[in-house]
Design a protein around this nucleic acid. Structure first.
Lengths: 238, 238
DNA sequence: GCCACCAGGTGTACGTCGTACACCCACAGT
DNA sequence: ACTGTGGGTGTACGACGTACACCTGGTGGC
């Protein structure tokens, strides 16, 4: 083996790893092999690196998945055309769908996420904002967001599943600052949360009235379906 | 240790295992610990048995999950009252939802299933049959089933994801018999499949036009939402 | 020019998972 | 009495995620 050891390795000094490269490689690997085929070990191998090296760039596999989902969401086509009212919502949702469809694993991954990254909140805020711009009340916007469910993502996770529970308790002023930041970045999400909790955000963790939201969406669909049936609807044959 | 060995073990001769007991225990364990906490080893321990013993009753973990999901579906409240038209659909879907909510893991489990067991097909057939009884065309029934999505289950797996691909190729007459059996047990599912493939069931594996189904459901929801907005809808405050 | 630092990559090891495979035992049918 | 055979056992293997100790090459301070 000494006859082989070239001190200045020729072609591939192997670019340094960083979070971005890890995430991109993970997305590519998942595209190829599906979520089930994505393991830390396999991913490391793909990057020509030892498994533990990944942990310098992502906290653990959950964080890796979070990052991958963010990457997909960032790939949502921006709504360049300024469409009127509800059509803007439709446009945005269909754009999300296109991005999600590019990655067959994305639906499952998004559904499994329990943390809400800023990127995820950003998308929800954008959809809510589009509904508000179309003249919807905060109240109605809220329930329609639930009803859209899957469709917001090209398929709806709950906004708040579990309390954030970071490590050490944040100081009051840090909390204040975070709240202000949140209000600025996600104003529409905030107004919905305020409406739903009647201004008492402390109870935001326990979520919405799921039974109500379920029935709301069900009735929206069934009423619409019945209207189609009465009008003798048939699907367009291509 | 010989001083302890009692030849006729006193209280617990430990009832024999069978598929039913395994499934019930698995459901109970998942109820307690969530899907993530359900492992073959843990389940075996709960049953006072060695892990490999389970494999005499379920083929593998996938089959275990299939069985658990079937158990949940069998727990759907039967629609005793004969409601008129669309209300029967609503009633049935809400019944499914109640059953699914009893088991927090069920949604995730159902979504992850790729095989369609007879029990699953049975539920879909029942929902389709209820829509047909309400006067919906096969065509409209089909698309409404897609649109209901999650809601059919208390949250929509595709009917056909992958070809069945059992082990050895079934003989033609066995295939014939299976088809006849299917037609008898799931007539409404069959008529939808026939409609969607225009009578050529050989192509049933490649599924429906997902883009169309997605847009159909999206428009149903958005049209309904817009109607509510125009009528000045507000949610009922309790 | 030296050295101390440290971000980033390595190696080893642990506990858990699903499950293949060989076994063994108690009872049923002859 | 003999022989299957259905059901429970024991051992073992190859993944997996990741903790922990280590090393190493480049950078900033002096």
């Amino acid at each position: 083996m000494p006859g082989r050891a070239d001190p200045a390795a020729p072609a591939a000094p192997r670019a340094r790893l960083n979070r971005g490269r890890v995430l991109v490689a993970a997305v590519a690997l998942a595209d190829e092999t599906g979520l089930a085929g994505l393991s830390m070990r396999r991913l490391a191998q793909e990057l020509g690196v030892v498994p533990m090296a990944l942990y310098k760039h992502v906290a653990d596999k959950e964080a890796l998945l979070d990052g991958m989902v963010d990457l997909v969401i960032e790939g949502f086509d921006p709504p360049e055309e300024a469409l009127p009212g509800i059509d803007a919502v439709r446009h945005r949702v269909l754009a999300a769908r296109r991005a999600v469809r590019r990655h067959p694993w994305a639906r499952q991954a998004i559904e499994s996420r329990t943390r809400r990254t800023p990127t995820v909140l950003g998308h929800m805020d954008a959809v809510a904002g589009t509904l508000r711009a179309a003249g919807f009340s905060v109240d109605l916007t809220h329930h329609v967001m639930h009803a859209l469910g899957n469709r917001i993502w090209g398929f709806s996770p709950e906004l708040f599943d579990a309390p954030p529970e970071d490590g050490p308790a944040p100081t009051p002023q840090a909390q204040q600052a975070m709240a202000a930041d949140f209000a600025e970045r996600f104003p529409h999400v905030l107004e919905i949360a305020l409406e739903a909790t009647r201004g008492d955000l402390s109870g935001v963790g326990q979520g919405c009235d799921e039974d109500f939201e379920f029935a709301f969406a069900l009735d929206l669909l069934l009423d619409g379906a019945q209207r189609l049936q009465r009008s003798g609807w048939t699907s367009p044959r291509r």
